[in-house]
Amino acid sequence: MEYVIQQAINALSVGGEYALLALGLAIVFSIMNLVNFAHGELITLGGYAMFFAAATFVGNPVLLLPICVLTAVVAAMLFERIAFRPVRNAPATTGLLTAFGVSIVIQNALVIFVATRPKPVPVPSWMQGTMSFGGFNLPVVQILETGATVCAVAGLVLLLTRTNLGLAMRAAAKDFTVVRLMGIQANRVILGAFAVSGFLAGLAAVFILARRGAVDPLMGFTPVLKAFVACVLGGFGSLLGAAAGGLVLGILEVVLQATLPSDVAGFRDAIVFLLVGAALIWRPTGLLGTRAELGDKE
């Protein structure tokens, strides 16, 4: 029984992590048709900020957590301002390739100026323990991550329904021109979307780093790949689809991890992608996607 509960919370936390990342991708995509390949580098940069802060002026590891989130937010907004603004109205492929370039630039800049080898990131020790929850021993990180995901999604829903910026983002996803006709500044909406996506990535980064305990230049790639797949699985551009896709992907991974024999366990990611591919052949627009042409706005 305890094993089942442990695996369930594990699945929820992994799924939650993918959902956070996928939501960030989907928000940006829905508004400006950009697949942010460099989304994973937000995680990496958050991690390096923690590493540098810990090495210089921050003694208490708890303080590193907001630094990580803040760095991801600022980095996301800088990406938009510097790299993505020139390709704002370009076709989706152009934006994707730009983001791909940004991702390579960041990775290699970190290789040049820091190092290829992983650097340790101190995490509050209580995050790495387990806690007793209704008689079961569960890892603190996973409980926190599940809780944080729920809070973040709730906050996102409030933002999107209760604030003018959120309304404008939802409206911009459908018809950006008319949003501008309301006098709302396009730059502000897009920057807001990037800030939100950076916040969600920063939040996910906190937990990713708490698990790994170290940061390296290439660490952002695997999580963002999962988030891509979650978005495609859920239907690209749909926020609900992104969250659902992330959750499904996380659950699928944990189930495979628990059931695969050890000699094929290394193939887990390949198997997950193949299953997702099979699902897409059956439903090319994703589980919740309805658009005729996937990835193209009407």
């Binding site: 003018n164 309304l167 404008a168 939802r170 409206a171 309301m182 006098g183």
Partner: peptide, 13 residues
């Protein structure tokens, strides 16, 4: 969006 939200966006600035 709802009628209310459409109108609110009109007055957003």
């Amino acid at each position: 969006l709802s009628v209310a939200e459409n109108l609110r966006l009109g007055a957003a600035t």
